[in-house]
């Protein structure tokens, strides 16, 4: 038990270190921008005095290392700075930006919840479905069913998400109006309504993820079927389904859990395109919008958030596969 905790602590430390380096990369990348925040806020026609004032106001006259540490310290406390777009809008409207409306954290909060909801719904549909399909494909390998699912999954892996999204919109929203094609989620919606509006983006992501999960489950199980203990179980006269579920599946669990975690990590990047197609108010859409108008603090914060989630999920995958595999649990 102590060794597991030590391994987990080691991985965790490694993950935090990676995250730290990633935050440096993100900060450095943004600092490569020509000009700086002050010019970006004031635009081209700014007077040097105004730029200087803003620079001092935002602390841009300090050296990069100090600024980085300040940004990091702020980010750790949940303060991700102020959005340019919101600040601009406030100054245009003649009001001062209140700390609440312009802060990146306030913008991210509800959207983060929406994105998590979408990813959660997708995972709930995709994981059981694809493991079931994977077991079936492994059970009836090389049959017509297996070949057909192989072709189908290969096609859906390789299609861009927006193609899958438009096909689903075409058949489920336009030709047969079953589900809404626009996901206008707002606060205080009741759960059923929210679920219906999330279902089409979730189905799109399910299509994209299921294929990978199913193929991995199938491969992991088939890999094991050649081992002697499976042969033994078969010779005992066990039914093929029982051999797979009782004997092969527990040993195939490590790679399967790994793939599930990796695919959830993939979901995080997948949501960007899908959220844009369905106008789903999540982090991905905010990210793309901010990229287009070069709202640096928001881009920075979203990037950090995506990277954190990605690293955390990869870490989970690592730890889960160690826990489920005794050979990794007790390294020689």
């Amino acid at each position: 038990m102590a060794s597991i905790l030590r391994i987990i602590a080691q991985r965790l430390a490694l993950g935090i270190l990676t995250l730290f380096v990633v935050s440096i990369v993100i900060f450095a990348a943004v600092n490569m921008l020509p000009g700086d925040f002050a010019q970006a806020i004031l635009g081209q026609g700014a007077t040097p005095e105004a730029i200087k004032a803003i620079r001092e106001d935002l602390g841009l006259d300090q050296p990069p290392v100090t600024r980085y540490l300040q940004w990091l310290a702020g980010a750790l406390q949940g303060d991700l700075g102020n959005s340019f777009a919101q600040a601009n809008f406030a100054s245009f409207a003649g009001t001062t930006a209140t700390a609440n409306s312009a802060s990146v954290a306030a913008q991210l909060g509800p959207r983060f919840e929406n994105t998590m909801f979408l990813a959660g719904v997708t995972a709930v549909i995709a994981v059981p479905f694809s493991i079931f399909l994977g077991i079936l494909a492994a059970l009836y390998r090389n049959s017509v069913f297996d070949r057909f699912t192989n072709i189908f999954t290969l096609s859906s892996i390789s299609s861009p998400e927006f193609f899958l999204a438009y096909i689903l919109i075409l058949f489920l929203a336009v030709l047969n109006p079953l589900l809404p094609s626009l996901s206008n989620i707002y606060e205080g919606m009741d759960f059923g309504d929210r679920l219906t509006k999330t279902l089409l983006p979730a189905l799109t992501l399910t299509l994209a993820v299921t294929a990978q999960l199913m193929r991995m489950t199938r491969a992991a199980i088939i890999n094991l079927l050649a081992s002697p203990y499976i042969e033994m179980a078969r010779l005992k006269g066990m039914s093929p389904m029982r051999v797979i579920v009782k004997h092969a599946l527990p040993n195939a669990l490590a790679p399967i859990i790994n793939v599930i975690a990796l695919n959830l990590a993939y979901l995080i990047t997948g949501v960007v395109v899908v959220e844009v197609v369905f106008v789903y108010p999540g982090i991905g859409q905010l990210f793309v919008d901010s990229v287009k108008i070069r709202d640096i603090p928001v881009v920075q914060a979203c990037c950090l958030l995506f990277a954190t989630a990605y690293i955390l999920l990869n870490l989970t995958a690592d730890i889960m596969s160690i826990i489920s595999n005794p050979r990794l649990r007790h390294p020689k």
Partner: peptide, 23 residues
């Protein structure tokens, strides 16, 4: 390479494209 791979590729590409667009 380990560090670069820790950032999801589409997200990283979008971040760098923001900067490239400014350049």
């Amino acid at each position: 390479v380990d560090v670069l791979m820790a950032i999801p590729s589409l997200i990283f590409a979008l971040l760098l494209m923001t900067i490239a667009a400014a350049w």
